[in-house]
């Protein structure tokens, strides 16, 4: 199986990075479409299990941002 595009799972903190991502939208900044956001209440919520599981599901990258 080869994939043209990559898929990156982003765990974004609702109060910080998720807000920044919203603002980036409001400002119409452009960035690649590889990222799939999972909103979490805080990066403290992200357990290593999630990261491993994401890779196991075939994610090419994981980004955790507070």
């Amino acid at each position: 199986m080869t994939k043209e595009k990559r898929k990156i799972v982003a765990f974004l903190c609702n109060w910080c990075s998720y807000g920044a991502a919203d603002l980036a939208g409001v400002s119409r900044m452009q960035y690649p479409a590889d990222i799939r956001v999972i909103r979490v209440p805080c990066t403290g919520r992200v357990s290593p299990k999630f990261i491993l599981s994401a890779f196991r599901q075939g994610a090419d990258g994981v980004w955790v941002s507070g």
């Binding site: 109060w15 990075s17 920044a20 603002l23 990258g61 994981v62 980004w63 955790v64 941002s65």
Partner: peptide
């Protein structure tokens, strides 16, 4: 493949 960052909502 794994990245961590800290970004404020602004």
């Amino acid at each position: 493949r794994l990245h961590f960052s800290w970004i404020s909502s602004a």
